[in-house]
Amino acid sequence: MINKIFFLSEKKNMPSNQPKFFFINTLVFINLAILFLCMISNEALAIDQINQPESDSTSIMAEEDDFDDDFDFDDEFDSSVINVPDPLSGYNRLMTKINDKLYSWIITPGARAYSFVVPEPGRLAISRSFKNIFFPVRLVNNLLQIKIKRSGVESLRFLINSTIGILGFMDPARDWLELEAYPEDFGQTLGHYGIGAGFHLVLPILGPSNLRDTIGLAPDYFLNPIHYIDSQTLEIGLESYQKLNSSSLYIGEYEALKQDSLDFYILLRDSYEQNRKMKIRD
């Protein structure tokens, strides 16, 4: 598997093939779209911010209630509610439904069947090995954010786990040396440099995302060694297998979250955005 990573340097100089062109084209298109939509969403946000304090102050004055002592609490949660711009909520809700059917009809039953065949320790080992292969994504994004110490830890982890950890199937760096991975992706890198999330966007199969993180998928695609495998079938096969394996480790969590919700789309949307905010802050 280490060999596959070395393909990275060789293949970069080769003439670009179809999928790469496709990605660059979409990147340009998305860039144009972001500019346009940012202009719109900025205006919408500005109007929101002007209106907000006024409506609040009237409701405070209108009625006296034991809510008075909770003012500083309320402010704490107000901002987090307003901050998700969602002009495509119609499309997003539809895509959430389609994804939901995909999960409950195909992915979850598949993952369940798979989990019967392969015991959990095996699946965890496979998941660790994939994580080890995805090391370039984490390293480059840590470097881009000038997190030097974390980049060093990531490199050390890769060295130790690829060798002593037998191609990353084990994680001695974490178990013995307490070196934890520092997951970073390009969406987080953009966020780190102050680029806002843009509007919320639900992607097919991948689920909740936003404009910034969707754009971030393209650079991460090129940093992922799996995409430098010669055979297209093997590439897609490996990627699907990785998804299946990782979802087999979290069977039931999606369903639990869904059952817990009153408006599943809103729950997914807000959870995603809040979680990303934390990851960028970190």
Partner: peptide, 19 residues
């Protein structure tokens, strides 16, 4: 309680608000 940065109050609040 915030779990992985996701606040229980905030997520409940936006759902209630939507409804």
């Amino acid at each position: 309680i915030e779990i992985q940065g996701v606040s229980i109050i905030s997520t409940n609040r936006s759902q209630f608000d939507q409804i």
